[in-house]
């Protein structure tokens, strides 16, 4: 009896140990991946092995431009939602017109970056894991390596450049779309005209609010790229492995984004 319980405790400890090493290994891999990508972005051109502009532009289009409609739609809806909730809350104090302040600050500081981050994680994180994972399963990554084409330079570095440029850009766009959503609802509900709305909004927002959102969006950009790419490269076991990696990439990147958001919000506001 005693031996069995000892055995099961030991079994759990072994499991825990394995899980812990797997996590540390993954973080270690992230550091390597990020380091190597930066290396190729900076040193590549001097070694006559630059990160290809065409691949980078293609990534920018698929990560950024193609996401514009959905980012607009969701951000607009968030703006409307914030206006509804804000007006409902402030009505209790008879201060409905102050709603613009609430919308402006929460959008720029929080909802713009967050909704963009989550959308990009869903679209790009999964696409990256699936694309690179399929290449891994089909030996395309091996083929690149034996051709003397570094897979990190060829596949990962363009993605880092693209996310670092496009996620902040999308975030700014999302800020505007959400504010616009708020403006439309405020006009319908409070009869507040657009000019007055934007006037108020811009007088409340200081540059620090915008940069705070942008700093977060840069962190989210790195998270999406790292999680998507590393899950893709880690694929083993064919189509099923690709499916698993894709799911994992989306769930993990959204979780990391929400956690990172909390941490950054805390530290940036101290």
């Amino acid at each position: 009896m005693a031996e069995t319980s000892f055995g099961s405790v030991r079994g759990r400890l072994v499991q825990l140990g394995r899980a812990a090493t797997a996590v540390i290994e993954e973080y270690g891999y992230w550091v390597t991946l990020l380091g190597e990508s930066l290396y190729w972005i900076v040193v590549g051109p001097f070694k006559r092995r630059p990160v290809r502009l065409s691949a980078t532009v293609a990534q920018m289009v698929s990560i950024g431009i193609a996401a514009v409609p959905i980012v607009f739609m969701l951000s607009f809806a968030i703006g409307v939602m914030l206006a509804i909730q804000g007006i409902y809350t402030l009505r209790q104090f008879g201060a409905e017109t102050q709603v613009v302040l609430g919308i402006a600050l929460s959008v720029v500081r929080e909802f713009g970056p967050l909704i963009t981050g989550i959308l990009v994680a869903g679209r790009t994180g999964s696409a990256l894991a699936a694309r690179i994972g399929t290449m891994q399963a089909n030996q395309e990554i091996d083929a690149l390596r034996v051709m003397g084409i570094d897979p990190v330079r060829f596949l990962a570095a363009p993605v880092f450049i693209a996310t670092l440029v496009m996620v902040p850009a999308l975030t700014l766009f999302s800020d505007l779309a959400a504010m616009f959503g708020g403006a439309v609802y405020c006009q319908l509900e409070l009869g507040l005209n657009h000019v007055a709305y934007w006037d108020q909004a811009t007088s409340f927002i200081v540059i620090n609010d915008v940069t705070q959102g942008l700093i977060k969006s840069l962190v989210f950009a790195v998270i999406v790229a790292l999680v998507g790419i590393s899950n893709g490269f880690a694929v083993t076991g064919g189509a099923e492995g690709v499916g698993r990696a894709t799911t994992r990439a989306v769930v993990a990147s959204i979780s990391y984004i929400v956690l990172a958001d909390m941490l950054f919000t805390y530290f940036l506001n101290r």
């Binding site: 089909n138 395309e140 034996v146 051709m147 003397g148």
Partner: peptide, 28 residues
């Protein structure tokens, strides 16, 4: 440098599926 003087034909071909046959051959 060494890899530029070596060619490999993988079991399943391992051609990049996002590129045409011509682009695949031109890639190296």
């Amino acid at each position: 440098e060494l890899r530029q003087s070596i060619g490999v034909s993988f079991q399943g071909g391992a051609l990049l599926s996002s590129l045409t046959i011509g682009e695949n051959v031109a890639l190296p």
